[in-house]
Write a protein that binds this DNA or RNA. Structure first.
Lengths: 154, 154
DNA sequence: GTATCTGCAAACCCTTTGCAATAAG
DNA sequence: CTTATTGCAAAGGGTTTGCAGATAC
């Protein structure tokens, strides 16, 4: 299996873009980080390692990583984007606790045939699918009651 | 079945908030509108009817509607939030065309038992779940090829 | 009467962009 | 050499907030 760096260099070459240390340092940091990140946390963790890259460069590099399928936008809950690296990571979805903000990942194999169904039924070609579940995690359950019980058909 | 206005008034009363014409006009407009909206379109459609409500009031009213389960945030694709009214509307998910931006709705009954599974497996109490699918609609299919074919396990 | 709500405009904050200097190919 | 990229700082744009006046209750 190719490394993320190889994937990225191939993408860069194909597009006639330029291989720069900044982009590769940012990419390395993204894949060194355990999970979700945002621009600010990424910027800070680079700085803490003594790597000086401007936020502008991070903002300009992210669309490239997304475009070549290494990274995806996850959510926009706090008024800014959160991202995660997806290459080499099982397809998964997210549980977000409304009380503590914790994010859990889970798999939903039942969705594997959804793409085919959407193609047949709507002529829609699926590129990505993500299930976003909000609620209360085990620790917060009871402490903070949900406003309304979930209903399938209100 | 209670009307959205009744739901909202009950919510307002319970919280000791105040029933104002502005909030109810905004709510009425949201439910008069066919589907998805954003703050700007809502503001403009109110204005076109000669209803003067400030954007600040809209921004301050939306969290209330969301909190009482009448409205939900849908996505943040264009750099700002989009919303939809959900009360009295079948639970559904979204297909977003990456080429033309069109949004289709579809049902996924297979997810109806997900809540129970997440509760058993993770102790997670589901409040809401939304499946966000990106890809290319029938009209755009072929015109603009997806960057990477979808893979279940990369 | 008192506390909430509205409208206005300014403040906020994340993100984008213009520009000159730098560096990749 | 030519053109993409970087860093800086300023601009952008949706959202939030402070404040004075209006208004529910």
């Amino acid at each position: 299996m190719k490394s993320e760096l190889e994937i990225f260099r191939e993408y860069i070459r194909q597009r006639g873009l330029r291989r720069t240390p900044e982009r590769e340092l940012i990419l390395a940091e993204i894949f060194a980080t355990h999970e979700h990140f945002d621009v600010d946390s990424l910027y800070l963790s680079l700085r803490q390692k003594g790597i000086k890259v401007s936020k502008a460069s991070i903002y300009r590099a992210l669309p490239l990583f997304i475009d070549c399928g290494l990274v995806r936008e996850v959510d926009f809950t706090d008024g800014h984007w959160h991202y995660e690296h997806i290459y080499g990571h099982e397809q998964h979805h997210h549980l977000r606790c409304l009380a503590c903000g914790e994010v859990l990942e889970f798999a939903e194999p039942g969705l594997s045939c959804l793409g085919l169904r959407l193609l047949q039924e709507y002529g829609f070609t699926v590129v990505s699918q993500h299930l976003d579940v909000k609620g209360y995690c085990r620790a917060c359950r009871g402490h903070e009651a949900p406003a309304e019980p979930e209903k399938e058909t209100p």
